[in-house]
Amino acid sequence: MHIEIDTGVCIGAGQCALTEPAVFTQDDDGFGTVLPGRADGAGSPLVREAARACPVSAISVRPGA
């Protein structure tokens, strides 16, 4: 799977990092980001849950290429 965070939409709520800290973190400004090397989702079932938990739907998850 491929994960993207729309930085223009993210409000820094941190639900992604709380739900799946092995894939998501927050940058120095407090906005959600995908950890380096984890944009493929690392096979975690919690990635989709993190996308659902985002209060502004800034996270998109789609099948990888």
Rank of each mutant, 00 (worst) to 15 (best):
R52H: 13
S57N: 10
R48W: 01
V34A: 07
D27F: 08
F31A: 03
D40C: 06
A17E: 07
E20D: 11
E20P: 06
G37I: 08
F31Y: 15
G12Y: 01
G43I: 10
I5K: 01
G64N: 11
D29M: 13
D27G: 08
S57A: 15
C16Q: 01
A50N: 05
V34Y: 07
H2I: 13
D29R: 13
G37R: 08
S44P: 08
V47C: 04
A58P: 00
L46Y: 12
G41N: 09
G64P: 01
G43L: 10
A53G: 06
D6T: 00
G30H: 02
H2S: 11
P36R: 09
V9N: 04
E4W: 05
I5M: 00
S60K: 08
S60E: 02
R38S: 12
C16H: 05
G30L: 09
V9C: 05
G64C: 07
Q15R: 12
C16L: 06
A53Y: 03
P55N: 03
G41D: 05
P63G: 13
S44C: 09
R48E: 14
D28W: 09
I5Y: 03
I3M: 02
G8F: 04
R62M: 08
G41F: 06
M1G: 12
A50L: 03
D40F: 04
A13D: 13
F24I: 04
A65S: 14
E20F: 03
I11Y: 03
A50G: 02
G8P: 04
V9S: 02
R48T: 12
I3Q: 01
T25F: 07
A50Q: 08
S44H: 02
A51I: 03
G43R: 10
G37S: 08
F24Y: 04
A17I: 06
D6F: 00
